[in-house]
Nucleic acid binder design. Structure first.
Length: 467
RNA sequence: GGCGGCAUAGCCAAGUGGUAAGGCACGGGUCUGCAAAACCCUUAUCCCCCGGUUCGAAUCCGGGUGCCGCCUCCA
């Protein structure tokens, strides 16, 4: 049995066969860091974090890259409005992104490249496209000549002529064709800029992902992911840029997660109905948010509401309670029963079913239903007068194993909190050893915000809560 | 106009040819000093509607209705 992935390019589930046996190269489009992320941004973060965890669980060596767009029009606008500058705004919201996604159980990528740190590669990429005749310079801008790339529209399954009717030229643009898109934008007066062969300016939106994927993962990658709205035009343009230059398929599998609606309406600034993760996690257990997202298949839309979130919490608590029941029994009873083949089989079957469901295009909704079934099995077992510590331990281990694949922790909240603190302290210790004192201080400040005081003593670090 | 998605019990949600998972809520029962937790039973003769293919369809095909997304920055 192998993993199957729904590929947007072919519109069907395909067996997953990586380019290089045992290895997976994954690139997921990250946020433009001009504000705190909303729950719509959180979905791809959680979905693709789960994909990554599952691929690793299945034995793949996964290289996971996710970018930050830290310079673009929205950032420039935000900086002006806040009376700040682009690097300051970007830095602030990159830190906030890490904080918010960490709360949601999202692991850091192997690298989080930023546009501003990839400038030489981006410029070289554009330069080579110009040299190959796929792009042209026009008064300080550089545009990609869309019609020069055969196969444009293959991801979104649109013919280039159908697209043309929807395309438009903004006033003042110097495109030769409405479908052409910007690779490089000349800087206006007072705007942040970088030097380039075409003068002072900054990259267009799409080029960064092409340049970063190439820099970190090579000309062809296994999985490219993002929200479904990125399929067109963003990913279509990435394909055009990358394949025109590299002459190799950019990605083998294209994955797109569905939208989140608020009370059945699309989240948007104009409707004022967007929910920031930063605000939500103050009143809602982040694990519940993650559970809520994974309870629906990643390609389907999710409707978000406070009521549904509360139902999700009740549901998750059923699993958590079963887990706690097991832990509690372990501490209060003796080892009174023999090991049993019957329960060993339940455990093996549960793992097998979980894998079957996840293999099928990461069907986390089904995988979670397996956890419910397993919770019931655990409770049934605990009804027996005499139980075996080994069996109970096996139950607990499997809970940890499977919930871990989904990025969920079943520990009680207080315990979880302590564990997180310990983990952060450990990370800080390492940072101090590495003489990365800025990161060490960052962690100390982070904990201080949570009223956790760290004290470095000769015997090591101790911490206490500042009441 | 082009491309695409969705419609399954009161609610949420899997299931893409073999006879309706799971969760929440509701009702009945068991256990229990109380409470909690838990267990058992019950809850869709049927999957938007109409045709068709098939031994057999929620699942495939045709038509219809309703809702939604992309085609412009967007997760």
């Amino acid at each position: 049995m192998s993993i199957k992935i729904f590929n947007t390019m072919t519109r069907q589930k395909e067996p997953f066969v990586p380019l290089e046996e045992g290895k997976v190269k994954m690139y997921v489009c990250g946020p433009t860091v001009y504000n705190y992320i909303h729950i719509g941004n959180a979905r791809p973060a959680i979905v693709f974090d789960t994909v990554r965890r599952y691929l690793e669980y299945r034995g793949y060596d996964v290289q996971f890259i996710s970018n930050f767009t830290d310079v673009d029009d929205k950032l420039i606008k935000a900086a002006n409005e806040m009376g700040s500058d682009v690097p300051t705004i970007a830095e602030k919201f990159i830190n906030a992104y890490h904080e918010d996604t960490c709360a949601l159980g999202v692991q850091k990528a192997d690298a989080h490249p930023r546009v501003t740190e990839t400038m030489p590669e981006i410029i070289e990429f554009i330069d080579n496209l110009v040299k190959k005749g796929f792009a042209y310079e026009a008064a300080g801008d550089v545009y990609f000549k869309t019609r020069s790339f055969e196969g444009y529209g293959k991801l979104s399954h649109q013919s280039i002529d159908d697209l043309k009717s929807g395309a438009r030229i903004e006033v003042g643009e110097k495109k030769e064709d409405p479908l052409d898109f910007a690779l490089w934008k000349a800087a206006k007066e007072g705007e942040i800029y970088w030097e380039s062969p075409w003068g002072k300016g900054r990259p267009g939106w799409h080029i960064e992902c092409s340049a970063m994927a190439k820099k970190y993962l090579g000309d062809s990658i296994d999985i490219h992911g993002g929200g479904q709205d990125l399929a067109f035009p963003h990913h279509e343009n990435e394909i055009a840029q990358s394949e025109a230059l590299n002459e190799a398929p950019m990605a083998k599998y294209w994955m797109h997660n569905g939208y989140i609606n608020i009370d059945n309406e699309k989240m948007s600034k104009s409707l004022g109905n967007f929910v920031l993760v930063h605000d939500l996690v103050r009143e809602q257990d982040p694990q519940v948010i993650r559970f809520f997202m994974l309870a629906v298949h990643y390609r389907n839309p999710i409707n978000f509401s406070q009521e549904l979130l509360e139902v999700a919490e009740t549901s998750l608590n059923r699993i958590r309670t079963a887990y706690e029941n097991l832990k509690h029994r372990l501490t209060v009873t003796a080892d009174l029963a023999e090991d049993s083949d019957k329960w060993a089989k339940v455990i093996d079957d549960t793992r097998a079913k979980f894998i079957t469901d996840m293999d099928d295009d990461f069907n986390t909704a089904n995988a979670i239903s397996i956890l419910f079934d397993f919770s019931k099995e655990a409770n049934v077992y605990l009804q027996e007068r005499n139980t075996s510590k080994a069996v109970i331990t096996d139950f607990i281990h499997l809970f940890d194993e499977l919930a871990g694949v989904l990025g969920l922790t079943l520990q009680k909240e207080e315990e979880l909190l302590d564990e997180q603190i310990e983990a952060l302290i450990e990370e800080r210790n390492q940072a101090r050893k590495d003489k990365n004192f800025s990161r060490a201080d960052e962690i100390r400040d982070l904990l201080k915000e949570q009223n956790i005081i760290l004290e470095d003593t000769a015997q090591g670090v101790r911490w206490k809560r500042d009441k």
